[in-house]
Amino acid sequence: MDNFQDTIFKLKRYWADRGAIIQEPYDVEVGAGTMAPETFLRVLGPRPYRVAYVQPSRRPADGRYGENPNRLYKHQQLQVILKPTPADVLEQYLGSLEAIGIDLKKHDIKFEEDNWEAPTLGAWGIGWQVMLDGLEITQFTYFQQCGGIDLELVPAEITYGLERIVAFLQGVDSLYDIQWAPGFKYSDVRLAEEVQFSVYNFEAADVPMLWQGFEMNEKEAQRLIDGFRKAVKAKQSVTRYPVLPAYDHVLKCSHFFNLLDARGAISVTERVGIIARVRKLAVGVADAWVTQQAAAVSKEVA
């Protein structure tokens, strides 16, 4: 039986063999692998790209103090982006399941409609949840729009829920019982984190500090976006402009928003407005990134 890390190694190897760059997790808090710049920004523009990475994804409101066997504040997604989508993408995906030891002839696999949308990112796509013997193991999405921009090349995003898949493979009823490495269970590695962050997210986080964090990062992201626009207007070169740092600040905003939400600090009337504020930043960065990429290409050509 493979342990947790074996399965990750195999999936990475599988996609590396199919031409994907193996990236490491992004080091800013994100709610999903989609938000890492390797997905959010790379799917934009005309350049083909293939990448796979594990992304620890934090959803403060999903924490259960380590008491619920199926729910986590932070879970590990293995994210694959294939841009443009190869015609045999689903066959490749099924091959990856075989590669981690699932004998598909002995199991029941179904693709059930599940379209994906992230309002804070101005992003949506069409796809399925992949069901294995009644268990959702993967979200498969054909991206259509990101940062409010119609995508030129349609990427396939394959998001494996690693804990669920490995619990299935290992036949354990609690995610905490997963063997992570020989002699170490998932609970040995992560339980303390689940408990302490649940306490922090739901009870201890200082709300005024969270608001301050949100606003500081929003301001900085907006300052950078405005500066970019000004530079473009003045016909200055933007190839070295810090668009990527601006995106980090958008991610920070999004995380502070999630923390405020988990703390119950966002009222109904505020909520819609705050989602719109984050979305505005994400759209601003996406737009800047596309412009910057186009500028870089024309420079190469020149």
Binding site: K106, H107, D108, D133, G134, L135, F168, D173
Partner: peptide
């Protein structure tokens, strides 16, 4: 209802039972 020709080893049944239990 599975999209298969059967479940001779009971693996699919066990998988579905585990999901339902959770």
């Amino acid at each position: 209802v599975t999209n298969t020709d059967g479940d001779p080893d009971g693996l699919i049944r066990q998988g579905n039972e585990r999901v339902l239990r959770a």
